[in-house]
């Protein structure tokens, strides 16, 4: 019956992930967003480790370690530094006000669960019920990217989306092959660095990190 406890814990962590996604949607401060992102990564790493332990899929340990190293330690640290350097930790109002965003988010979660139902019935893994949550995380992260106009929250939204995808992969098929995961992790790392450089460039060009200014680039 050991499996049952693990399942309970994984489900708890999944719920936590979803909760953090909502929290990110409602978070107005950039630094707070980074903290939430780090917590989300931690929950993800923990759940992956537990799945690895309970099912004996050893490669998942590496995935969990990778997640911990990259998304809980390296990237949040990088972001904190970036925020300090650029001095952008202010309250930013999203484009759509937060209650409306939350309502849209709830609709998305219902949609995701509905969508995941037939798929999770086909899947034979222990965590199939969490697939809906994973999908919901992806959609919520995308929603966050849409509603924020500043550069750093957009990057974090992008990374949160990747978290959701990662979680979907673990819950549906016990994770992707290690090679793929390593590749994805590397991609994300490079992506963050590139976006970091972009952020500096955007700031230099427009004197602001507000992406609204990029409208000026449009060809008339």
């Amino acid at each position: 019956m050991a499996l049952n406890y693990h399942l309970q814990i994984v489900n708890l962590l999944a719920a936590l992930l979803l909760l953090i996604s909502f929290a990110m949607l409602s978070q107005r401060r950039v630094a707070g967003l980074v903290t939430l992102f780090a917590w989300q990564g931690a929950a993800l790493a923990l759940s992956t480790a537990i799945v690895a332990w309970s099912t004996g899929q050893h490669h998942l340990y590496y995935s969990a370690a990778l997640t911990l190293g990259l998304k809980v330690i390296a990237m949040p640290w990088y972001f904190y530094r970036l925020i300090r350097k650029l001095n952008v930790n202010r309250v930013v109002e999203p484009m759509i006000n937060i209650p409306t965003t939350m309502l849209i988010g709830i609709v998305l979660v219902i949609f995701a669960f509905n969508l995941a139902l037939p798929i999770s019935q086909m899947s034979g893994t222990v965590m199939r019920s969490t697939l809906g949550i994973a999908l919901a995380c992806v959609l919520l992260a995308l929603l966050m990217m849409i509603t924020r106009t500043k550069a750093i929250p957009q990057v974090i939204g992008f990374l949160a989306m990747e978290n959701g995808l990662f979680f979907a992969a673990t819950s549906a098929t016990y994770g992707m092959p290690l090679v793929v995961e390593l590749g994805v992790a590397l991609d994300v790392l490079v992506g963050v660095f590139v976006l970091g450089i972009f952020i500096f460039q955007i700031r230099e060009t427009f004197d602001s990190l507000d992406l609204k200014h990029m409208e000026k680039l449009k060809e008339k």
């Binding site: 995308l142 990217m145 509603t147 957009q154 992406l211 609204k212 409208e215 449009k218 060809e219």
Partner: peptide
């Protein structure tokens, strides 16, 4: 093509 990243997203 609006030029706003939010729209593209």
């Amino acid at each position: 093509q609006h030029g706003r990243i939010q729209w593209y997203l």
